[in-house]
Amino acid sequence: MANDKENLTRRKFLREGLWGACLAGTGTAAGLSIARNNRDNTVWQIDPYKCIACGNCATFCVLENSAVKCVQAYAICGYCDLCTGYLVPEPKALDTGAENELCPTGAIKRTYVEDPYYEYTIDESLCNGCGKCVNGCAAFGNGSLFLQVRHDRCKNCNECAIAAACPSQAFKRVPADQPYLLKKVDAKE
């Protein structure tokens, strides 16, 4: 009971709720994957608690633009002005100037919410899954940015080229009807 209370407290502190928005359309995506490859009705996914954002996801995918993208767990994000996933470690200013942006492809958008909070969203068409922002967020922030295989583009290869190259065994097969391994506020799985 005491433990339940601890969890509840933590959940409340971390603002439950906005999470669903970040992977909109996952149901459709899962359907597509199943149609493409029915192997055990499973698809590839990254365990966010094992991934060390090594960069291999950006270059080892058989697709020209990797199927792995950065996603945002809004319920965990601190909405920080000084976002270390968005800003270079030594920003000249806390603003959207290109010289201050950490993401080499400009895939992260910063939107003012209210003083002093900002929301960070990923433009997946620009993201190559390099994981630079994931490292920045994990080092100083709450670790709300993480990598996921996006099933609207993944070919669900029998032998995933990234899985073979992953140094931390973060790639695994998951049920196609639950194709994402999300970071949750209150539990690992």
Partner: peptide
């Protein structure tokens, strides 16, 4: 051909998050 990833990602330096200097 590196299929194991042991030789690194091959990404250029601008994609690396390096706190070593700091």
């Amino acid at each position: 051909l590196d299929t194991t990833g042991r030789s690194g990602s091959g990404l250029s330096e601008e994609f690396a998050y390096n706190l070593q200097k700091l």
